[in-house]
Design a protein around this nucleic acid. Structure first.
Lengths: 216, 216
DNA sequence: AAAGATTGATATATCAATCTTG
DNA sequence: CAAGATTGATATATCAATCTTT
């Protein structure tokens, strides 16, 4: 494919489909991409047929390499910033996977249960919960919906107030205890274990200072 | 609403709708939630009618507060970890918004253009690009699709190789230069400006060490 | 009217499968 | 077949609007 192509659409498989090579009916197929061929052999045959009429693909423009420094930041500062992004986006999927696999909740659901558990009375208004979990109001509504369907939290509208509160249930607390066991062990193994006591202190101080700079 | 309710569904607005109070036809309405009332007045009337037959909602279980320490981590270690999550998830939406508003790309699209710009020949295989941008293979396919539709990158399949390469176009580089101006100024203002030189160095070193611990 | 919660539409990521090519 | 890329289905977040209650 040549430069500038945006990978245009190919012919879609016919409805209720037959193999594009031999015409055999295709298996119904469940999730994932639907197949156009009844077997790997037919797929190969189609490939070889295509190969016969292609010519060498044109080259893309080879822009000369130049400066790579970025505006406004030194290399060191760039590393301090992008390193954080990298570390976090490598670690979070691992921690999320551990929770899904061993505690049946994802990492955002964990955060909701954890924040409720921290709060006095194991309860928190939706608005404050959204702040703590770092999602939007609609995000917290749907997170709580999912957890409520499983009986891990309830909704309360105590004393005729406008605000709705989410409340951690007994079952929710049981799930959370198991999840904390898994999750915080993971945080230690993947993050804390690689840092010195001074670095831990330094980070804790530094995050505290930065948290003040972008208001919630 | 009482505890344990999961906020069950309400009657949905009738198709092609009329006001639930006065029966007037509803305005067609564009995005967002469709309305059930023709005016705020009718909405209020429905509310007052509902109010007449509700009794005090039952209270939720008020679990006694207990221990709040978490397993496996000290308080300090917990701060060092959760502070990073908090700072990053507060800063990223701001930086994303700045890019969308002033450079017409989002922060993941920025990352793709930036990584291509860093690479020799302004080009990079899809697989390596996915690694650099920290998304899955299907994620990078779709990101490049979007950018290619706008002419900011192209696809090349040079020298009969299996791998596809994404290539930064001239237009892509123009957009990127503007975006870097906006973005890295934001990173300085929101992050770097609040740290000492020693802290910057410390962070850069520390991220380098951690990056090695969870393999790409 | 305003604060807070919810909802339909939508954007965009991942997952699980297939396609493409060597 | 294996490595790499793509795609349909799906999960889940945000956005823009309305609903709910004070």
């Amino acid at each position: 494919m040549s430069v500038g192509s945006s990978g245009g659409k190919r012919t879609s498989p016919s409805e209720g489909g037959v193999c594009a090579v031999c015409g055999c009916p295709l298996r119904p197929g469940g999730a994932g991409r639907p197949s156009r061929y009844c077997s790997a052999a037919c797929r190969q045959r189609a490939y070889r047929a295509r190969r016969r009429n292609v010519d060498a693909p044109p080259e893309g423009p080879d822009v000369a390499g130049g400066e790579r420094g970025v505006p406004h930041l030194t290399e060191r500062e760039l590393l301090a910033w992008r390193g954080m992004l990298k570390v976090q986006s490598r670690l979070l999927p691992v921690l999320d996977g551990e929770l899904r696999g061993r505690a049946e909740i994802n990492i955002n659901e964990f955060d909701v249960l954890y924040q409720l558990w921290l709060a006095p009375g194991r309860r928190c208004r939706m608005k404050d919960l959204a702040q703590a979990v770092l999602v939007t109001p609609s995000g917290i509504t749907r997170l709580v919906d999912r957890l409520a369907e499983r009986g891990l939290v309830g909704r309360a509208n105590s004393e005729g107030r406008q605000a709705v509160e989410a409340v951690l249930t007994g079952e929710g607390e049981r799930v959370l205890r198991r999840a904390m066991e898994v999750h915080f062990a993971g945080v230690r193994r993947l993050f804390v274990a690689h840092l010195s006591a001074e670095e831990i202190d330094g980070l804790a101080r530094l995050w505290g200072r930065l948290s003040g700079t972008v208001a919630p």
